[in-house]
């Protein structure tokens, strides 16, 4: 009965375009303590990252973003998770997990280029974020001292999840 009273929330994703970039800017400005450069907003519109940069909609309202970039060194391509965030009232509803899963699925099926792994930085104090990523198959591979210039603590964990390997999500 209660499910008919309160219909299941609709969660959906949309690609970034020059037209909805204003929404991304608005979300970033309230989600993160850092002001992102214009380069950031240019990169997220690049055609080959379309599947890895998304707006997250909850009941048709944009409430979060997830943005990655492709990095290729020595012929190996990695996906770097730059930002992921959801507005406070919409947290703990599985939106983060669904977003991350969306990206991992897209990375797995990406052929040109083939993606080796996804990695990201988490501030040393943020253990809940670390746990979250570990639940999705990420592993700590290193600590980057003095990663954050303006935030304390300065250090960050580097977490990585291999793509296309043997690992599966728990």
């Amino acid at each position: 009965m209660s499910s008919s009273l309160h219909p299941q929330p609709r969660v959906s994703f949309a690609s970034l375009t020059p037209n909805n970039l204003g929404t991304v800017r608005k979300l970033n400005s309230v989600l993160f303590p850092i002001k992102y450069s214009e380069k950031f907003y240019q990169d997220v519109l690049l055609p080959d990252t379309e599947e890895f940069c998304k707006l997250v909609y909850y009941n048709d309202i944009p409430v979060g973003t997830i943005c990655c970039r492709l990095e290729t060194t020595d012929g190996i391509t990695k996906l770097y998770l730059m930002t992921m965030g959801v507005l406070a009232p919409y947290r703990s509803k599985g939106l983060g997990s669904q977003s991350l899963q969306q990206i991992i699925t897209a990375a797995t099926s990406n052929i040109k280029p083939k993606i080796d792994s996804v990695y990201l930085h988490v501030q040393l104090s943020n253990t809940s974020a670390k746990t979250f990523y570990e639940r999705h198959g990420f592993k700590e591979i290193a600590v980057h001292e003095n990663y954050y210039k303006k935030l304390v603590p300065h250090g960050a964990w580097i977490l990585e999840r291999r793509i296309g390997g043997t690992e599966t999500v728990a």
Partner: peptide, 15 residues
């Protein structure tokens, strides 16, 4: 909005 999120109604209703 202070109670556990899983039990509360959709935040969009409040909005």
């Amino acid at each position: 909005s202070s109670s556990p999120p899983s039990e509360s109604e959709s935040p969009t209703t409040y909005l």
